[in-house]
Simulated assay, not measured.
Amino acid sequence: MGNRRLRKMGRKVAISFLIGSLATFLAPSVRAEKPEHLQRIKQTRNCFKCNLKKANLANISLKGAFLRETNLQEANLEGADLRFAVLRKVNLKKANLKNADLTGAILRDVNLDDAILTGATLPPRYQRRSKSDSKVRVPELIIDILKQQRR
Rank of each mutant, 00 (worst) to 15 (best):
N111W: 05
L112R: 03
T103Q: 15
D113K: 15
A120K: 05
A105P: 09
T118H: 08
K98E: 15
L107A: 05
K98N: 12
L97G: 06
G119P: 03
A100T: 12
A95Y: 01
T118I: 08
L112S: 01
K94G: 05
N111S: 12
T103D: 12
D114K: 14
I116S: 08
A115H: 01
T103E: 14
N111F: 03
V110K: 07
I106L: 12
L97M: 11
K98Y: 05
A105D: 06
T121C: 00
A105M: 10
T121R: 10
A100R: 06
V110Y: 08
L112M: 12
D109F: 10
K94C: 07
N111I: 10
A120T: 09
N99D: 15
N99M: 11
A105C: 10
K94E: 15
D109L: 09
T103K: 14
G119I: 00
D101M: 08
A100W: 09
P123L: 01
T121G: 00
D101T: 09
D114R: 13
V110G: 05
D113G: 03
N96P: 07
L117E: 02
L117I: 15
A100N: 08
T121I: 13
P123Y: 03
T118R: 13
L102T: 04
D109P: 01
A95V: 09
K98R: 15
N111R: 11
D113Q: 14
A105R: 05
K98Q: 15
V110C: 06
A115V: 03
L122F: 02
T121A: 03
A105W: 07
L102D: 07
R108D: 14
L102I: 07
L122C: 04
T103N: 12
L97S: 06
V110S: 07
N111Q: 12
R108T: 15
T118N: 11
A105G: 11
G119R: 02
